[in-house]
Amino acid sequence: MDWEQIWKLVALPDNVPIVLLLVLLPFYLWMAFSQAFKNDRLIARLEADPDLRKTHHRTTFPHHPSWAPTVHVWPHLLKREFIAMIIVTAFMIVWSICLDAPLEEPANPNLTMNPSKAPWYFLGLQELLVYFDPWIAGVVLPSIILGGLMAIPYIDTNPLGNGYYTWKQRKFAVGTFLFGFIVLWVVMVVIGTFIRGPGWLWFWPGQTWDHHRVDHEVNYDLHAYFGIEGTWPTFFFGLGFLLALGGITGALTHLFLKKCYPRMLQSMSKLQYIVMMQFWVFQIIVVVKVIARLVFHVKNFWVTPWFNV
């Protein structure tokens, strides 16, 4: 184990925020889910007891009938905001005293940094460059991410869980979101930052970054595995494969939803359903492509004279 290599990476000033993120994220996930499970237990109790339903205040926070349901913003909210400001200010000052912002040599177009990396919060996208053409990884996928995020409120027809943490009432929504955020975004950032070394090659934590390492890995396009040749056979094979992959993913998802969340399907309009399924299938295809590349050395699914997917 090359501890120095790990330390060099983690202690790189611009990587310190990722360490902060990796501390904060589990903490807040714990905070969210401990409340979600508490609420779920309360919900189960209320479902089982119709009498309790009529009298219960329906939160897991401390409650007394004589307490007013609302409090004055001055001072109850403002004092908290003020304290938060002081804590954040103090935290930022301490951080800024302890750690200097990085400044490398002056910009030099003739001296390429290896690896040259985007700012850490974009490294998830840069990592996707391994698996997709630049126009997909750099333009299409970010657009799909933003479009998907913006579509969320309009395709989630579940009226439950509005204004409180819950897991049981929103398993599919919460699961999908956390999968996208944690696995497809944060984990990709971590891989891009801590795993990818010179030449954007894969270096396990503790492995020394070898600038002279030669990549012996050879990747093939999917059609080569099937011995298909020629422009048009390749084109239709790839198109067919992607359509089949999307179709199977969609069909399996549909069966799963039908079995586990029939009410969800009933409550969605056709348009809502199509949009939701589109984004879901895109998300799965990204995962399949990543696995196919890392495990089976598949370069592209669909090769055309103009672009590859």
């Binding site: 002056p106 990396k117 126009w135």
Partner: peptide
């Protein structure tokens, strides 16, 4: 305008 920023922005805008 250092190496870090220069190459990060080069990589970022190359996608464009």
């Amino acid at each position: 305008d250092d190496q870090l920023g220069f190459w990060a922005v080069t990589v970022g805008t190359n996608m464009a």
